[in-house]
Amino acid sequence: MKILRNSLLLVVIGTMTWMMFNLYKDYDSRTTLNETASYYAEKGPDETGAANLVTSVVVTYRGLDTLGEVTILFLTAAIIGLLLRTEKDSKTVPLRQSSEFLITAAKVLIPMITLIGVYIFINGHLTPGGGFQGGAVLASTFILLLISISQRKIGHRLLEFTEAISGFSFVLIGILGIILAAGFLDNHILPLGKFGHLLSGGAIPVIYSLIGLKVGAELSTIILELNQIQRKDDTIS
C-alpha cells in the first residue's frame, strides 16, 4: 500500500518535473536590460534623487505595492493577536532563569544591534539596506531581549504606539504627496538635495524610516504574542 502511494506520488512529481523542464529548455539569459529597467536606470537617479535604485523602485515607482505589503503585515499581527488570546486569570508557568552569561552579554549587545538596525534603515537610499532589513534586525534585538529577561513581564504599549504612529504617518505622507506633488507617495514634497548625501532624495529617508519602524514593531509584536503563551498554562483552549 505504501509502495503504491509512493509510486503514484512519484508519477505526479515526474509529470510536473517534465512540465518544468519544458519551461527551462527555452530559457536564454538576457544580455541587455529591458525597456522598463532601462527607464529606471536612466531617469531614476535624477527623478527620485536616490542612489540605490532598488530603493527608488520600492518606495516611489512601486509605492502602492509597499502599502499593500505593510497592510498584510498589519493583518498578520492582528490575526495572531486575536487567535492567541488567553484568559486573564489562567495560571502562569514559572520559566527558568537565564544564565548570568546571557544576561551580561545581552546588556552589552542590545544597544549595538539596535544601532546597526537604525543605521540600516536610515541609509537605505545610499547603500544596500532599507526599511525591511532594518526592521528585521530590530525584531532580532527584541528576541534577544525576551530571552535574557524571561522572568519579567514586558508591557507592549510602546510597541503598539510605535506601530500605530508609523503606519498612520506613512499613509499621511502618501496623501500629502497627492495634495502637494504629483501623486501618491511622491517624494518631491521635500527638496531633493545633493545626490549622495544623507538628506537627499526628498521624502525617501522619511518614508523608509517609518516603514522600518513599522516592520520592526510588527515582527516584534508577533514574537511577543508567541512568547506570552509560554507563560500561560491553560488546558482549555
Binding site: S38, A41, P45, V57, F132, L219
Partner: peptide, 23 residues
Amino acid sequence: AVDQITDPVPQALVLTAIVIGVG
C-alpha cells in the same frame, strides 16, 4: 548605469515577497 547594472525590478519584488513569506 544602463550598461553596468542588473535588473532592479525583480529584486524589489523579491524584497516584498520575503517579508510576506515570514508573515
